[in-house]
Design a protein around this nucleic acid. Sequence first.
DNA 1: TATAATTTTTAGTTAAGACTAAATATATAT
DNA 2: ATATATATTTAGTCTTAACTAAAAATTATA
Lengths: 218, 218
Amino acid sequence: MFTLSEENYLKAIYHLELDGTKGISTNSIAEKLQTKASSVTDMIKKLSDKKVVIYKKYKGVKLTDLGKKTAANIVRKHRLWEVFLVEKLNFSWDEVHEVAEQLEHIKSAKLINQLDEFLGFPTHDPHGDPIPDNEGNLKTIEKSLLSTLHKNETGICVGVDDSSSEFLQFLDKKGIVLGKKITVLEKENFDDSLSILVDEKKLSISNKIANNLYIKKS
Amino acid sequence: MFTLSEENYLKAIYHLELDGTKGISTNSIAEKLQTKASSVTDMIKKLSDKKVVIYKKYKGVKLTDLGKKTAANIVRKHRLWEVFLVEKLNFSWDEVHEVAEQLEHIKSAKLINQLDEFLGFPTHDPHGDPIPDNEGNLKTIEKSLLSTLHKNETGICVGVDDSSSEFLQFLDKKGIVLGKKITVLEKENFDDSLSILVDEKKLSISNKIANNLYIKKS
DNA sequence: TATAATTTTTAGTTAAGACTAAATATATAT
DNA sequence: ATATATATTTAGTCTTAACTAAAAATTATA
Ligand SMILES: [Mn+2]
Ligand SMILES: [Mn+2]
Ligand SMILES: [Mn+2]
Ligand SMILES: [Mn+2]
């Protein structure tokens, strides 16, 4: 069994590995968890003793299979709870993350499996992120950043990269929600801003926005 | 804001006060929380600093209004989650307590109020215990221990005093669930055991059982 | 390659929340 | 009323998970 703090470290390392990095550095973990590098070193030793990470001094850290499975299960819980909050308790997608950060640490296999069933075995959370199965497997769907689409290409909005409240509320305001069809009308060379079509409405969005929206090309 | 440990102490004191005791002793708290008296003294000082209990050395402890409200809110969360687990996730009444012990510490006013609404504003938990309202008010219903009923009296089963798994599973086995009509057929003077009628079936139950079952007389 | 900059680890503190053992206050019994 | 028993508090220790500051290793630069 893992403490709340250990679980948060595991999750942080898991996300960093998914982001593509190979050896996860002490500093990157510290930054992700808003803590100090020395604290990370301490915790890494504990996680290494518990066989969830491989640790070589000065060489960064790597999840073991057990570590990956454990972390994926926490992410599974986080995302299932987010679905619950949005689907059943009328939370909006920008309100769920903080509560899910708490709920993901509740320990009960039955709880999470029954919740999964109650929700109809959802495959994605409210931000379009995939929900790991009971064994920790993630099926990643093919998606591209809106910023990589070319003029006249069209796709469905399937996720966000940044899921901060500010960004999500901005999207709400613009009428951009998951499932919406988006067409690139124009691409400005000067600042990489885009002119897009959503619901017959023409919107102008910055490159920063386009870099945080995932599209499934169609 | 209160830590998990502080919340558990508040809840313990709250329950002890509801049980009728006036000045709650260090030892009784220690026993309820399975901890040592010295640990209790430490924590009581912290709670006193935070204005949730009145503490006079050697004289026991008492909840302030703020303390009562805080504790009642934790109990509210505990019981609403128990309803959720039974009504929505197919838990049985003997499986919910441990999970609710964890869920009661999740901090989100919106979560608990939406959950309340989602559940249809239940007034009692799966064990027949009343659910405090948002202000911490408890409406207690009139109920008697089955052991206090006389021969030929009849009532509805409305709660349990002991809600351990073992007791609850025993009741399930006997077909005694909340809402069942129970009639006292015979009372044995020798050992205070009872012969009762449930669902046309005659059952013989010990005094210990009868002392843990609440009945609303009819 | 030698030096400088950066990253990581180690050593030593701190705070929360538990514990044991000892001291002190209160309650009970002669 | 005094002695004994019980309850409570205090003093000091331990563990977890943070922190700062200093030391050591690695990486980058001249
Ligand atoms: Mn989230
Ligand atoms: Mn999410
Ligand atoms: Mn309970
Ligand atoms: Mn209950």
